[in-house]
Design a protein around this nucleic acid. Structure first.
Lengths: 193, 193
DNA sequence: ATCATTGTGTACCGATTGGTATGTTATGAT
DNA sequence: ATCATAACATACCAATCGGTACACAATGAT
């Protein structure tokens, strides 16, 4: 081979992910990216393709990590109720602790890109579907163990919890009083019985 | 006075609202606006100020109409449960019928602008709070009439319904199967007892 | 009829956009 | 040591961005 790369591709992608996450696609310029990633434009184009391909790679990296975190919280431990409580409250905590108030990269993309770009409509929808599948698996575990005995079917309940989580995440971007969010989490969790 | 305006200011603002609603702030150019509003740039600047001021005026027009619609559906008629059902299902219907898939202008703005612009953080938060107040009023009406006897307090329930509605609206931007959304609405409405 | 005032259309401004051509430097195979 | 290859930095490209200067047209008061 020939001259080797002087930058870490995965680290650069991680940097790009944080920039796109906090500013969105349109508001992020190539100059923002070169500055934040610490590399020049031709390096970006040779390693990742154009701006939109880089964005897609960054989003895929995010959703993979995000789904892994959901799995690790919801598919382990004894109590399913406790797991959901920890998961929802963890997301609330993270959101209020983020000074940049970025919310969820996937949700941001759903709002900004999905209506105009089918690729991102599909990509974001499939991530939320996967999240719903994880939720459903956790609920069914609770049903089998006898911890839960819910009236509605596990799938509908899981989807509703995903919807509620999306709503919480978006609402927190407007920085409502903490009690607003905390009370909502309490009420949402009453769905899991 | 002197020469009079040749365009209808309110109609131009309505046009601008639809453009910003479907494309967002960053992705909308002055050329998009002049083309869609049917007037030239200097006319925009003299009538509305700069791009961001026009955006704010458009958003205020939207939220006023949006809140009025919520009031008209939720604060009249006999059954509160039926009113919420009609309200939620109406929003689902509207969303799936919109070929542009614009969702809610206020929610779009919450995601795109609120984290970076305090003015829009406040503006969007206050609209959602106002919506929650309308919801709460409807719930309290149902409690007084004896139609409802909910375990949780009306305020928390109202806030949770707002959160759920935001989640639904955002989720629909990724065009999930209709049954996903319909089942979620059913489950969400079970909170109102 | 004249004049001050203000809306309209054109044409332009500097700055920034996403993207690339180019010359140079580093590397491994031969 | 030579050479093909590819990453590097610089400098550039046309196009578009938000915003405005300016000349002209229309209006009502005098």
């Amino acid at each position: 081979m020939v001259r080797q790369r002087e930058f870490d591709v995965d680290q650069a992608l991680e940097d790009a992910m944080h920039i796109f996450w906090s500013k969105g696609y349109e508001a992020t310029s190539l100059s923002d990216l070169t500055a934040g990633m610490g590399i020049q434009r031709p390096s970006i184009y040779s390693a990742f393709g154009d701006k939109k391909e880089l964005f897609e790679a960054a989003l895929r990296k995010y959703t993979a990590a995000h789904a892994a975190q959901a799995r690790s919280v919801l598919l382990h431990g004894e109590s399913v109720k406790e797991a959901f409580k920890r998961y929802f409250e963890g997301i609330v905590e993270e959101s209020y602790a983020d000074p940049q108030n970025r919310g969820c990269f996937c949700i941001n993309t759903m709002v900004e890109m999905a209506p105009h770009d089918e690729k991102f409509e599909i990509l974001t929808r499939e991530h939320e579907m996967y999240l719903a599948a994880i939720f459903q698996e956790a609920i069914e575990r609770g049903l089998r163990s006898g911890e839960l005995h819910t009236g509605v079917d596990a799938k509908s309940l899981a989807q509703t919890l995903v919807v509620s989580l999306i709503g919480l995440t978006v609402m927190m971007k407007a920085r409502p009083e903490r009690s607003f969010v905390d009370h909502s989490v309490e009420v949402i969790l009453t769905l899991i019985q």
